[in-house]
Design a protein around this nucleic acid. Structure first.
Lengths: 199, 199
DNA sequence: GCGCATATTGTGGAAATCCGCAATGCTGGC
DNA sequence: GCCAGCATTGCGGATTTCCACAATATGCGC
């Protein structure tokens, strides 16, 4: 999915000038005149970042942000704000908003923030994909393979694993070989590294 | 080092009432009437969190925060703020400030934030200590042991390690046994897990 | 009933790991 | 020169890991 900067602002002049500005820097844009419009268009496959005005008719920026968070949206959000509201800013940042930029703003500053947000989105996608891959590998293990894997990862000898599971050592070897193959690694060390942080 | 809530505010009444409030909830306090006073008292062994007023005569809260960050201070900082200043709030949060609480504030809210900040401080200390411990273990390895360790962690057989380093397999075994002992682990799997994230 | 997936087990042999015991050589500090 | 630390190596033996080949039993879906 191609990354876009999703511009959400009821002021058409701002949407147009931001679109022009960002596209001249190679950033694909999609603009929406209201929070409701973007919400209707959003789905979890969208890639990029959101540039979101705080004050709009109808649903406000923070309200949209809240709803997107509830729906699991991970896109970085840059708020455009013309008035100070510290509690709202603190609250949004703590909920994961990427940044606040005050209007009127320096063109370069905003574009740079957008580009940073796009980088963050890209990095998050890679990390999530890695995590999904490992999880799907684990999901393909049989119950017994998973049991043996846990014991291998706790550093036990095959002999002790056999004692603990009350099976033969040969069976432990079979499961061990199968699980390493399914996890796409050759050794228990590689397995431990693959699963680092997932335990 | 005992954790304290370090209260920095030029208003004595606020310092006193916060002290009373926090101590009645079991939090040790130390208060300072100015940013300069706290800065003079600070050193990196202090444990706890900082409750910091924004507006003070002399050095301001954000200025103190800036200086502390430059000096490597990791204590969580809760800003007390009576006026909105979004860019300052956004900037401080992005630099790692723990929270902003507006004055006048709900007593329970502030105490809860302080207690959360103390927990964060404690967790950070444990994590830093773990990291230091592993680093000091690594520092005790000889050059050769470190080389062998890297190759073990990349999953190579002793035989291949011996080829690569142009030494005998017995020597690899000696280094391998020595490094595992020095790192306090019994197997390469445990070693990989100990070093997860440090590579 | 048949086929498939899974779990289990045994045999035999090869390879890898581990380690006690013993020894040599080099370097740096006292 | 002596000693400690480090690097290196060999021998012999024990243990562990790995796996081809082969087989049986159970449960499930068609």
């Amino acid at each position: 999915m191609t990354q876009h900067a999703y511009l959400v602002d009821d002021d058409e002049a701002i949407r147009d000038s931001l679109t022009w500005l960002l596209e001249s820097r190679g950033v694909a844009c999609a603009s929406y005149p209201s929070a409701e419009d973007f919400l209707a268009a959003w789905d979890s496959s969208l890639a990029g970042c959101i540039v979101l005005d705080i004050r709009m008719d109808g649903m406000s920026g923070p309200e949209l942000f809240e709803l997107l968070c509830e729906r699991g949206c991970k896109l970085p959000v840059i708020f455009l704000t013309g008035h100070g509201d510290v509690p709202m800013a603190v609250s949004a940042l703590k909920k994961g908003a990427f940044d606040f930029v005050e209007k009127p703003c320096n063109d370069n500053e905003l574009v740079n923030r957008v580009i940073e947000a796009l980088k963050l989105d890209a990095n998050q996608r890679v990390a999530a994909s890695d995590s999904d891959s490992v999880n799907s590998l684990i999901a393909r293990l049989t119950t017994r393979e998973r049991q043996v894997m846990e014991l291998v990862l706790s550093g036990k000898l095959n002999k002790l694993i056999a004692d603990e599971l009350q099976i033969s050592m040969r069976t432990v070897e079979v499961h061990r070989a199968n699980l390493l193959e399914k996890m796409g690694v050759r050794t228990a060390v590689e397995l431990a590294q693959l699963l680092a942080g997932k335990r």
